[in-house]
Amino acid sequence: EALVETGIFTYILPRFTLKTRVRVDLVSEGEAEVQLGPEGQPVFEGLGQVWHLAPRVTPSENAARFAEWLGGEVGGRTVTAYAPEGVALFRLPEIAEQAEAAPVYEGDARLGHEVSRAQCARCHGVDRATRGAGIGSTPSFAVLRGMPDWELRFAGFYTLNPHPAFTIIDEVTEPFPEERPSPIVPIRLSLEELDAMLAYVAAMEAADLGAPLTHQ
C-alpha cells in the first residue's frame, strides 16, 4: 500500500529493533496484531491523512511494546525524522504537537563525536580541532547545526547528495550496485552510531549564521 511504498517502515523498524531487540514483521491485514488505519490512537500525519494505531486482536507483549513505542515521543520523533531526499513525509498530529516536549536525544554523544571525526572529518569540520579541515566548500557541523532543519539533515544525511554514492547505513541502505561502486572509501555507520552522531550534534554550539539563510 501507499504507506509501505514510502519506505517509512524500512526506516523505523530497524531503529525500534535496535532499541528493544524486538523484531517486527510486516504481514497481511488478517495476520496483523496491530495496524495503522483511520481508527485508534493518532500517531502521525502524512499522505493526506492522519494515521491511527489500533490492535486487531489482543496483542502479544512484543506487539504491545511496539505500539507503545510508536505512539510515544521517541517513536514520533523517529517517524518525523524520516526525510528521503531531504523532505520530511510525516509530521505529528496537531493534537500531539501541542503537547510535544523538547526533544531528548538518547544516543551516546561521546561515541557520536568519535564517529564524526572518524567518518565525516575528511569533508566536514566536526569540532574545533578540525575546523578548516576537509573540503573548503563543505559546511562544518556547527554551520549545519545552525540551520532550522539541522535534525532532518543529520538524521537523513545518507539520502542527501552526494552521500548516497558512498554511504552505507546498516539495515537501512541497499548495497551499492556492482556497476556503480563507491567512488571513495565508503562511510559505514550502524543505526546506533547514527543516533550517537545526532546526539553529539544536538549538544554542540551552533555557528552564528546571522540573518536566516535561504538554502535548498
Rank of each mutant, 00 (worst) to 15 (best):
A2E: 15
L3F: 03
V4P: 12
T6A: 11
T6V: 10
T10Q: 07
F16A: 04
T17V: 04
K19M: 14
R21V: 07
V24Y: 00
V24Q: 11
V24A: 15
E29W: 12
G30R: 07
A32I: 10
E33C: 12
E33Y: 10
E33V: 10
V34E: 03
Q35K: 11
G37R: 01
E39L: 13
G40F: 00
Q41R: 14
P42W: 00
V43S: 03
V43G: 02
F44L: 04
F44T: 04
E45C: 13
V50E: 05
W51Y: 04
W51G: 00
W51I: 03
H52F: 05
H52C: 11
R56A: 14
V57L: 13
P59Q: 02
S60M: 13
E68H: 08
E68N: 10
V74C: 06
R77A: 11
T78D: 08
V79N: 01
A81H: 02
Y82K: 09
A83M: 07
E85F: 12
E85V: 07
V87I: 14
V87H: 12
A88N: 05
L89F: 06
F90W: 08
L92F: 00
I95F: 03
A96R: 08
A96T: 05
Q98F: 11
A102P: 02
A109G: 09
A109F: 02
A109K: 06
E114Y: 07
E114R: 13
V115W: 00
R117D: 02
C120T: 06
A121Q: 06
G125Y: 01
G125C: 09
D127Y: 04
R128D: 15
A129M: 10
A129T: 10
G132A: 12
A133L: 08
G136D: 15
V143I: 14
L144P: 00
W150T: 07
E151P: 03
R153F: 11
F154L: 10
G156D: 02
F157Q: 01
T159V: 03
T159N: 04
L160A: 07
N161I: 04
P162C: 15
H163M: 10
T167L: 05
I168N: 06
V172F: 08
F176P: 02
F176D: 03
P177V: 15
P177Y: 11
I184D: 15
I184S: 15
I187F: 00
R188E: 09
L191V: 08
E193M: 07
D195W: 02
D195T: 09
A196P: 01
A199F: 05
A199G: 14
E205S: 07
D208Y: 01
D208V: 08
A211P: 01
A211M: 07
L213E: 05
